[in-house]
Design a protein around this nucleic acid. Structure first.
Lengths: 210, 210
DNA sequence: TAAAATCAAACAAACGTTTAATTAAGTTTT
DNA sequence: AAAACTTAATTAAACGTTTGTTTGATTTTA
């Protein structure tokens, strides 16, 4: 049998609660209660709490990689357009799966060696290598500057997105948008963030130092 | 009596372990063992584990604010130089107190309402207001563009710094610096990050869109 | 000798996991 | 088609640890 109803329900609730309260801050009893299943079902389906976390990671492992590979394969698109679409893809994933990316952020911070953090690091390495290919292509075509610090550039994209995402209520406050519906507000902030990052990346990749 | 040896020792160990393993991931027994004190001393000096966390926050509450205020007060320095020094101050604080800022990052993610998160939000509001003053001064002098999204710009600085800090081992790996001593490596990455952020801020604040 | 500091021990509560029994679903045998 | 059997799903209860905190006695300090 594959993916019972209750099994997927446990997985989704776990993702939500891990994001909200952290791995250590979430008990299997919390998960069981919210998913409306017996506690024993978690061990029954996933083996342990730790393996439940791994299962959450498994679910999200390949999305960005596929996007990047199809970008590289495209030989008609301009380099700068590829970078813009790269930003779009990342932000699409981030805002579409906020709760998961909060878990990633938390796991990233914990430097304990687990199967989940290994998966994460491997994902990061692979994606960074693909981004490198896109940038090098732009440099070969003479559109981008030489000496781009790609890891630092990626840190700005991921870091800015994370920062905005983890302090969304703060941005709502400073922009005086307390009344705006949450969904509309997120759309707005995503739009702002996209433009912001695109203009930064353009500066990093093309503007000569003065 | 004020600040016994053991009391400060508990505070420092707590900061270190909270940063490493998170608040929920750190037990008072862990803290007591590493600080080489009896478990009961934690309740004796701080009342509870929660209040111990608050005490850690208390210790760090005012550093950046003072730096910003002295920057605003200076009426000789050029606006761009002020922004550059703002970046220096923030990164100085971040790299000097990494473990504390990891705790901040974790608390920021947890949206539970505690005394500690309140302190954090208040700090953020105040500092953002001060940064706003510095930018507005530059705009009045005609050095900076109009329509600067200050919260977004700050998100880029804080977010990039956080991202680099939480994934330091990754940056060591991708830069092939596995052999470099940790201290030297951190100096290098801090230097890189500083230049990176300054060039981004210059672009944000002065380059006209093309 | 009075107050502060320190300690081992105990507390109840919460933790992740396992057990053993029961129900539901599916398959095989009559 | 009914009965017998087998496996999967589900449950309440219990398991042994670990959790944060408190107690009450003892030592140190002033």
């Amino acid at each position: 049998m594959e993916s019972t109803d209750k099994k997927t329900q446990i997985l989704e609730v776990a993702q939500k609660l891990f994001a909200k309260n952290g791995f250590d801050g979430t008990s299997v009893r919390d998960i069981a209660k919210e998913a409306d299943v017996n506690i024993a079902m978690i061990s029954y389906y996933f083996g342990s709490k730790e393996k439940l976390l791994e299962a959450v990671f498994e679910k999200h492992s390949n999305y960005i990689r596929l996007q990047l590979e199809s970008l590289i394969a495209d030989d008609k698109m301009e380099p700068m357009q590829k970078v813009y679409q790269l930003i779009d893809s990342y932000l699409q994933k981030y805002f579409g799966q906020m709760s998961f990316h909060k878990i990633v952020l938390r796991e990233q911070m914990a430097n304990k060696l687990s199967c989940a953090t290994d998966m994460l690091l491997e994902m990061k390495r692979r994606n960074q290598e693909l981004v490198k290919q896109i940038i090098k292509e732009g440099q070969k075509k003479g559109v981008f500057k030489k000496n781009i610090d790609i890891p630092m550039m990626m840190a700005t994209m991921l870091g800015t997105a994370n920062q905005v995402m983890t302090t969304l209520p703060f941005y709502k406050e400073v922009n005086n948008l307390a009344d705006m519906p949450e969904e509309e507000f997120q759309k707005l902030i995503k739009k702002k963030l996209t433009l912001h990052l695109k203009s930064i990346f353009k500066a990093i990749l093309t503007y000569e130092e003065q």
